[in-house]
């Protein structure tokens, strides 16, 4: 799943994707603010055709959190 997430990031995020690991913190390591996180979640929803409830967003602290969620939801 992390590879799929990386593919999405490659299209929707300007940073260096290859170095991303599960432990990366979305805010401090990837430099995302809440609006960029919104954009990422929208991109994930569109690509994987799923709906991610708003209340999940605060729980997405690391890349691993997103991957764990997608393993179950996607």
């Amino acid at each position: 799943m992390i590879e799929r997430l990386k593919e999405i990031l490659r299209e929707h995020w300007d940073g260096e994707v290859a170095a991303i690991t599960l432990d990366c913190v979305l805010t401090s390591d990837l430099g995302m603010d809440s609006m960029q996180l919104y954009d990422l979640v929208c991109a994930i929803e569109d690509t994987l055709d799923i709906e991610i409830p708003d209340r999940m967003l605060p729980k997405f602290v690391t890349v691993g959190d997103v991957v764990d969620y997608l393993e179950v939801a996607a």
Partner: peptide
Amino acid sequence: SRSVRNVQK
């Protein structure tokens, strides 16, 4: 709209 993040779309 399902979320404010979709507003423009």
